[in-house]
């Protein structure tokens, strides 16, 4: 009799625990659009060198230099007066582009942005970035499972990464 009661008690307890964990998960926002935040790769964005950022973002991978990737930085290209807002433009004839990554080598945190593209999305992509000092700027594209990279050197008059 006593054992039977105990068993029931256990069942009830177990049920209560799993119900409360479920409720916790639900309220913590894991199932809500807030999961946007959870997907931000903080390791990669907080990395202080280009190598670390790429390692965190892509893992170990060979990157081929590719001049077919058109990449413009600054206006006029290769020179920017104000580093706080430097225009960039990425264009390429590659197909099946899955990812585009922009890095500025001498910024305190080199990784600027990482785009995840679906087949419905297409280059050219334009944006504005901050550049701290004269530095190479790198664009990396992942297409058909391969990585392509191109670099431009940009001079800035006023650093813009404070």
């Amino acid at each position: 009799m006593m054992e039977d009661l105990n068993r029931q008690r256990r069942k009830v307890l177990k049920g209560a625990i799993s119900a409360s964990t479920l409720a916790l998960v639900a309220t913590s926002g894991l199932l809500l659009p807030q999961q946007l935040l959870a997907h931000w790769p903080s390791d990669a964005f907080n990395a202080e060198t280009v190598e670390d950022a790429l390692l965190a973002l892509l893992g170990k991978a060979d990157i081929a230099d590719d001049s077919a990737l058109q990449f413009k930085v600054g206006a006029p290209p290769s020179y920017a007066i104000n580093g706080a807002s430097v225009p960039i433009q990425i264009q390429s004839d590659l197909t099946n582009i899955e990812r585009v990554i922009v890095l500025v080598e001498k910024n305190p945190l080199p990784l600027v942005m990482s785009l995840e593209m679906t087949s419905a999305c297409k280059l050219p992509f334009k944006s504005m970035i901050k550049i701290a000092e004269d530095s190479p700027v790198m664009a990396i594209i992942r297409a058909n499972g391969k990585l392509y990279k191109t670099t431009r050197f940009v001079e800035v008059d006023i650093g813009g990464c404070a």
Binding site: F45, A120, C121, L123, K126, S127, M128, K130
Partner: peptide, 27 residues
Amino acid sequence: RNSEEVLSIKCGTATARNPYFSFHLVG
């Protein structure tokens, strides 16, 4: 686009103030 997710951009601190983006969608 019409409830289909087409692009996701992750930004670090080095994206300029008042971020501007321009891109193309197929079709």
